[in-house]
Write a protein that binds this DNA or RNA. Structure first.
Length: 930
DNA sequence: CAGTGAGCGAGCTTCCGCTTGACTT
């Protein structure tokens, strides 16, 4: 009943944006934000709405049998957003959906309309820069939702869901639990694996080359300069780039090439020292260099990494703070465009800081090189219509450093070209006599050699005065090499001739920024996801970092091979690029969502669909896929990824036994050479420790880590009769492999301990699969603690046996909670604690509490619901379970171990600390101006 | 990968892209 005035509700994606736009639009507008997507496919089984739970496809959240209809749910953390948007809408008589102007933004607008169900006129509003004029302009160009664009987004979303949720379970079955596959992560992993394969296959080549320090005479400035010896006779001297990855010389160019060894290089060096040197040719060319484009997400991450040492995550987190503090524009962007007002601001600053000569006549315009760029935002630049210098911001620490970087890059992008000159000088060496050098592939006899010196001078630095991009190797753009003025025929003398040996190096591993750059080039992933892609492949143990380098695990090798062999097209480097083309067709109304998804999922005649690929797994031989040869084929050495980790194996020789040993988790695959494998095999149990000799048998007692945890055992003599099994004893949980001593080990090996006699039978105490227990004939009872194995007396044992067995300790525990009678069965429901955590039971049916359920807060209604659900699907399972019962049981125990290991590993990843400090600084900016 | 006894419920993991919180130390 807001009678007095009419209001328009504008919804954008980001709260920061909302605040800014509200200032431009004035009091007739309420501006709110959705904070990204507000609804999505259900993330897991528990978030699937009850009415779909019985459906076969509920697991996917997509009804694959009926036009790929999607179930959309509002995640719990989004409910407050929806509520407040609805409240704002109640005050408004018009709704403008002003989410980003790209595929995802259009979809968010559509989801907003679905969830808010507006009764007032609703239009779509799109602007590409946050300036008052751009926003005023967009108000005059309102439109309806573009349903084709929404369809394109939904196609993308559903395809990703089908890929991820159908292929991941294949990995669980064939490899290990908790693995994952997806359109983006699987290709990212494959890139890292492929690079490691190249490194493993790489064969280094050794070669020598020659450098000469030359003297141009007393008047020359500089008098001395460096040159390379490039030719001997008519043969070019090989450099690193003349060798291929197999270490072979490649025939490139017209001149024949010779690779020098040490002897040959020294022969030539001696000869040049005594040669007459003269300038043969001087060639100079003008040099100009245009500034770099302003930052987008990937280039900012790379430069923040190289210049400031930030990880991708760190760069984004600091940038987020700068954005929220109003210092920079949006940091997740693939655009390099600057708004007109930004160009004006940058040019003004160029003039002020560097002067007119550094300002090009007309503004520079940058267009995106990113092929699938969505261009919903500007480049990353200082915010506002005038740029604050870093000092004027009052920032400090990481925020200051990143702002400074962004500011300089933006200003530099509107500066003049760098101008200079490059000079190439060719020098002839007339050798004192003819020289003959030989290499395996060639023999050369020559009486001349050629040297080359290159120089670069920069006469006007232009933008380089403000910003020079860092390089991983090679020369940076502002590096200068000065040569003296030289003229043809001029005589020179050699100060020094140096022969040096080199080896070709394998291709470098990816780093975080270089992998992200590669993904961007392949159009895989989006600015908002680059940082999380790295997090995902690290969390899955596909990749780990060694320094800055990303190293794949053998697990990644195995998973990648499985995907390459059985889902070939899905991990094709072009898969996403092709998908983007198809999505463009959908967005343009030239292809249909259902058809695209159907072809993908059910196949399109020629190609098999995903469904078939993920159902017919019979021909996937997991063991074969997980086994890799080491060195040559006949080395007999293999590395295998198993559920217990990665091991090297040596094939049995003759009728001997094969050997195996664990491979350390942090050993890069390319370092697992034949030698390394043999070294590992030489001490089969990595953590084995000898504790001493058994006093009776004089055999060594060792402590090892095994399949069921740490244990001690006796090493049998070589000549022990075949089939003799050594005694073993598991360590108590209170003991440690590193500290256990011989006495304790002997006590463990002496088990079972005889406690005494009871009812004419011997009672023993020992450790077992389910923990410590007593045994009397076939009657066994659990003990409370492991220590009791050594301490329990016969009287105490008698007391334990006097208790009835069936209702032992487990049942003596009271239920955690009583829920009253089940309305369906009228039986009392209780919550109990079991092997798999808390569960509810009515004495007949049992059902685990689900995610989100809590023992404290669970209601009788929920208990009854869980039981009813369980009863509904109970019987179907029993029949299917029978056959593989044994396997399943074995799987379980191991699965638990790997999960435990994983979660422990994951734990340290947190990223909160820095946020607060920078935010604080942002608020105290007024005090320090420059 | 060592090999020890019983008897009791499994359910869940996973994708990619938009965005910011609010648990704790």
């Amino acid at each position: 009943m807001a009678a007095e005035s009419t209001k328009t509700l504008v919804i954008v994606e980001s709260p920061t944006k909302a605040t800014k736009i509200a200032g431009y639009l004035g009091d007739d507008y309420i501006v709110e934000s959705s904070r990204g997507h507000i609804s999505d496919l259900p993330t897991n089984a528990s978030s699937v709405p009850a009415k779909y739970k019985g459906e076969k496809w509920a697991r996917l959240g997509v009804d694959v049998d009926h036009d790929f209809e999607a179930i959309y749910v509002v995640p719990p953390e989004k409910k407050p957003t929806i509520t407040s948007l609805k409240q704002a809408l109640a005050e408004a008589d018009e709704l403008l959906l002003a989410t980003d102007g790209d595929r995802e933004g259009e979809a968010i607008a559509w989801h907003l309309q679905r969830q808010l169900k507006p009764k007032v006129p609703t239009r779509r509003m799109v602007f590409h820069e946050i300036t008052e004029s751009a926003i005023r302009e967009s108000l005059t160009q309102l439109r309806d939702l573009d349903m084709d664009l929404v369809d394109a987004q939904e196609t993308r979303r559903i395809l990703d869901r089908l890929y991820g949720f159908e292929v991941s379970p294949v990995l669980w079955r064939k490899m290990t639990q908790n693995l994952s596959a997806g359109r983006v992560q699987s290709v990212a992993t494959r890139l890292v694996v492929d690079r490691e394969r190249e490194r493993i296959a790489f064969r280094s080549a050794a070669y020598w080359d020659l450098a000469a320090q030359l003297d141009a005479g007393a008047e020359a400035e500089p008098r001395s300069f460096r040159s390379r010896v490039t030719e001997i006779g008519d043969h070019r001297i090989a450099q690193g780039r003349d060798f291929d990855a197999r270490g072979q010389l490649t025939a490139s160019g017209s001149a024949p090439v010779i690779a020098l060894d040490e002897t040959a290089a020294n022969t030539i060096a001696d000869s040049i020292r005594a040669a007459d040197l003269s300038v043969k040719q001087v060639e100079s060319k003008p040099y100009t260099r245009r500034p770099y484009a302003p930052f987008r997400t990937t280039t900012m991450q790379q430069e923040a990494g190289r210049k400031l040492g930030f990880s991708a995550q760190r760069a984004m987190s600091v940038a987020q703070d700068l954005y929220e503090g109003g210092y920079i524009t949006y940091m997740r962007t693939d655009s390099v465009q600057l708004s007109n007002s930004a160009i004006t601001a940058a040019r003004a600053q160029v003039k002020q800081l560097f002067g007119d000569s550094y300002l090009p006549k007309s503004p520079r315009v940058y267009t995106s090189k990113v092929k699938n760029a969505q261009e919903a935002h500007e480049a990353i630049r200082p915010a506002g219509d005038t740029f604050r210098t870093p000092a004027q911001t009052g920032l400090n620490g990481d925020a200051f450093r990143l702002y400074e970087l962004i500011w300089m890059r933006t200003v530099a992008s509107q500066m003049a070209d760098a101008v200079g000159e490059t000079v190439t000088v060719r020098i002839q060496a007339d050798l004192p006599g003819s020289v003959t050098v030989t290499s395996p592939a060639a023999q050369v006899t020559a009486d001349t050699a050629q040297l080359v010196a290159s120089g670069r001078t920069i006469t006007f630095h232009g933008f380089l005065k403000a910003y020079v991009e860092s390089v991983d190797d090679g020369a940076s753009d502002d590096q200068q090499t000065r040569l003296p003025q030289l003229s043809q025929g001029q005589a020179l003398s050699a100060e020094e001739v140096i022969a040096a040996g080199h080896e070709t190096r394998p291709p470098a591993r990816y780093t975080e920024p270089s992998l992200v750059a590669k993904l961007e080039e392949l159009e895989i992933g989006r600015p908002s996801t680059y940082a999380s892609i790295l997090r995902t492949i690290t969390a899955r143990d596909y990749v780990f970092k060694r320094g800055a380098a990303l190293v794949p695990t053998w697990l990644a090798f195995a998973v990648t091979r499985l995907l390459e062999e059985h889902f070939t097209q899905l991990v094709d480097y072009d898969f996403t690029a092709k998908l983007e083309q198809t999505l463009d067709l959908v967005a343009g109304g030239n292809a249909e969502r259902v058809r695209v998804l159907s072809d993908f999922y059910f196949g399109d005649g020629d190609a098999e669909g995903l469904k078939e690929l993920t159902t017919e797994l019979g021909d996937i031989d997991a063991r074969k896929i997980s086994t890799f040869g080491i060195g040559d084929l006949d080395s007999g050495l293999t590395v295998r990824v198993g559920r217990y980790g990665t091991i090297v194996e040596q094939a049995p020789e003759g009728d001997g036994e094969g050997k195996r040993a664990a491979v350390p988790d942090d050993l890069p695959p390319d370092e697992l050479t034949v030698e390394k494998a043999k070294e590992l095999l030489a001490r089969p149990m990595g953590e084995e420790r000898e504790l001493g000799l058994h006093p009776d048998t004089h055999r060594p007692i060792v402590a090892r880590s095994g399949r069921f945890g740490p244990y001690v055992t006796e090493v049998l003599a070589e000549d022990a009769p075949k089939g003799t099994k050594p005694r073993t004893g598991s360590l108590f949980s209170s003991m440690d492999l590193d500290t256990i001593d011989l006495d304790t080990a002997l006590k463990l090996l002496s088990l079972p301990r005889t406690v005494g006699e009871l009812d004419g039978e011997t009672v023993t105490a020992q450790n077992g699969r389910y923990g410590p227990y007593l045994k009397k004939g076939s009657d066994s009872r659990s003990l409370e603690t492991e220590e009791q194995i050594f301490t329990v007396t016969i009287d105490q044992a008698k007391a334990i046996y006097d208790q009835p067995k069936r209702r032992g300790r487990a049942a003596a525990k009271p239920p955690l909670k009583e829920l009253g009678n089940d309305p369906n069965t009228e039986k009392p429901m209780v919550v109990k604690d079991g092997r798999f955590g808390p569960y509810v039971t009515d004495g007949e049916t049992m059902a685990s509490l689900r995610r989100g359920d809590d023992v404290e807060t669970i209601t009788p209604e929920r208990g009854a619901e869980l039981l009813a659900e369980k009863r509904a699907k109970g019987p179907a399972k029993k029949a299917a379970k029978k056959a593989p019962a044994k396997k399943a049981a074995a799987k379980k125990s191991t699965a638990k171990k790997t999960t435990a290991k994983k979660t422990a590993k994951k734990a340290p990843a947190k990223k909160t600390a820095a946020k607060k400090t920078t935010a604080k600084k942002a608020t105290s900016s007024s005090s320090s101006g420059s």
